[in-house]
Design a binder for these strands. Sequence first.
DNA 1: ATTTATATGTAAGGAAACCTAACATCGTCT
DNA 2: AGACGATGTTAGGTTTCCTTACATATAAAT
Lengths: 131, 131
Amino acid sequence: MNDKERRSMPLFSIGTVMKLTELSARQIRYYEENKLVFPDRTAGNQRLFSFNDVDRLLEIKDLLDKGLNLAGIKLLLEESKGVKEKKVTTKETELTEKELRKILRNELKQPGKLGQSNLRQGELSRFFTNR
Amino acid sequence: MNDKERRSMPLFSIGTVMKLTELSARQIRYYEENKLVFPDRTAGNQRLFSFNDVDRLLEIKDLLDKGLNLAGIKLLLEESKGVKEKKVTTKETELTEKELRKILRNELKQPGKLGQSNLRQGELSRFFTNR
DNA sequence: ATTTATATGTAAGGAAACCTAACATCGTCT
DNA sequence: AGACGATGTTAGGTTTCCTTACATATAAAT
């Protein structure tokens, strides 16, 4: 079992994730609905989250606090996820990318804000795993 | 949040622990009943296990495979838990300790056996935490 | 060879946690 | 005012978990 596997193991119920991230169940499910996280499911269809999922949720929370909207966050997360898939940068994607720039310019002009959560982005996996 | 806290954080449902340890719910609850593990509880009385709890269960499983009984395992785990509390080694404790020796002598004479679980004792926390 | 004790399985009834879907609300942008 | 995005809340249903009790298999003691 390597580290990658460990961090993507489905371990946590939504209740535990709520405490870990201080997000509501509604929020977590809404982010999933918008393709920002992809928790596993039990045989009975209940969500099971991994360390990676929790980290991702903390990141989402952080970016929301900074004024981004979910569409922008999704693009950011996809982008950072690797420069792969560089092939078909369709018009559609181009538009949304332009949108992102606009959003970043428009919304990120009020820097700082506050946005302090119980756990910070990346902290969970740093704490619990070996890299 | 230090490492000790991390490892004792109540995180896992019994369902997750079952998969992690390959023990049945019955077994896990029975070990708790016999004071071998002490999982937390949610507000609604459902068990929540920490990394330490899971490690402990793996250790129990290992020792059971080696032929020890729960009483012996309990003594072993308490003993290794620190040489503190050395004060009142009551007659009662002495007897049970003598008992343990006997059990160890009697039952541990068939060494090896097999006892290979999915995860080995201590492995979980080694994998998931930084020490 | 019974009896006794230990460890585990299984079933029943109930409670907690979770699920989806729908509607409500609140703030921001147009 | 209206539309949209993000979240709250509620309802009805399902899954998971709880305790308790009884059954069983193996090993130990009588």
